[in-house]
Design a protein around this nucleic acid. Sequence first.
DNA 1: GGCACACATTGATACACATCAATCGCCTCT
DNA 2: AGAGGCGATTGATGTGTATCAATGTGTGCC
Lengths: 232, 232
Amino acid sequence: MAASSFAAPCANAAAQPGGFLSHLGAADLRQLMALGERVPYTSQDVLFTQGAPAGKCLSVVEGVVGIYRTECDNRRQITSFALPGDILEIATQGHHEVSAAAIGPAVVWEIPREKFAQFASHRPYVLNEIVALMAAEIADAHDKMFSLGRRVAEEKLIVFLTCWRDRLVRLGRAVDPLPVPMSRRDIADHLGLTVETVCRTLAKLERRGAIEILPGRIRLLDTETVAASVLA
Amino acid sequence: MAASSFAAPCANAAAQPGGFLSHLGAADLRQLMALGERVPYTSQDVLFTQGAPAGKCLSVVEGVVGIYRTECDNRRQITSFALPGDILEIATQGHHEVSAAAIGPAVVWEIPREKFAQFASHRPYVLNEIVALMAAEIADAHDKMFSLGRRVAEEKLIVFLTCWRDRLVRLGRAVDPLPVPMSRRDIADHLGLTVETVCRTLAKLERRGAIEILPGRIRLLDTETVAASVLA
DNA sequence: GGCACACATTGATACACATCAATCGCCTCT
DNA sequence: AGAGGCGATTGATGTGTATCAATGTGTGCC
């Protein structure tokens, strides 16, 4: 139906317009970076935990960071995968609402909250940037809620893969064999599925000729048409 | 487990601190209201549709407004129910990402976007309010993603009912027989279930003595202990 | 090289939820 | 009061996904 076909499967794309507060001037950016420090993490490292006081905001520089919420320690919902240019906990007051962990080796720029607040207070336009960033994050959350609540496993995976590819494209990365650095468990916890269902569904898509599964990568062959039919 | 028991089942509560931009002064508030107009809607009326240009922002004054995303016209995901004091599309640029419809009779204050932007541009502190509002909305979205992806029907319903009650309490409403103005279909589309599953699960909870189902209302009897076990 | 270990995959089975189909209750309209 | 209609409820059945279990596959380490 025309009225609904406009729906972008992945508004998250809009949240990564090309870098950390991309509309800031170069001088501003340098000053901002100088307020914080470069912190490297290794795979599975936890950057912060839900419930902990939120003392800093973070910008991913390299690698992938998983944002998740846990309960009972066994159930986990990864709400997003942050890529270079993405900012974490930019407006969090008090305590973290979520946790974050490095999906692989990652580098993050960490800026103490009070320093960032001070920086922003002198520059009114920064707040506008933040609002725009948060608006994109909210739109993205809406998409994900739709996926989680109203899509079946196959659709979830197709949409996830195409969105992931689009984000990497926007970062100028090579995507022909699409890099998939996160584990099957991570994907499952992101899509509200189990590891086994993710494997099986990917295998089914491969048998159908829609994708080709490689170690650490997935080649997207026919997902365009599949996605089109799914999202019609 | 202690580390995760902190998790509020419904951070959305934080998004309704008691009114439209509650930290504004009374004078500001009057001026802001004067920029817009009171618009009444009747049940099922559509306030705006995803994809349409976002020309105004809205504040619910009376009733309940469902925010939803559709696809293919048959699948719908209600991302939230807005109550008096909630603001809709406050930072939306360009086009609406979601649709909104009155769940019952509702009254909404609608302010043209450019007038609101002008109002805010003279008052830097308004932007801070908006950021806080959006941060709460994002936290709430995280909760809902967890519910959609990682909870079973019974848990979804218990969490939904207790959150709904908490929000009404915060508005000073009577909640002993908890008013549930939305239809079973609305609840289903909010929780990622079907109407039948919602009915059956509610019936099961009633048989267990956790709730009592009344026309248009549900009395919460033992959901505290149930919720506690669910959220442990 | 070969062992260990984590991750990925595949199979068999169970179950939660969806689907299809009545029925019931309630409200509105004439 | 009766007819119509819509939402809610309940039942019978189907199916997508979870669960349990086993095997394969890589990858690092000694």
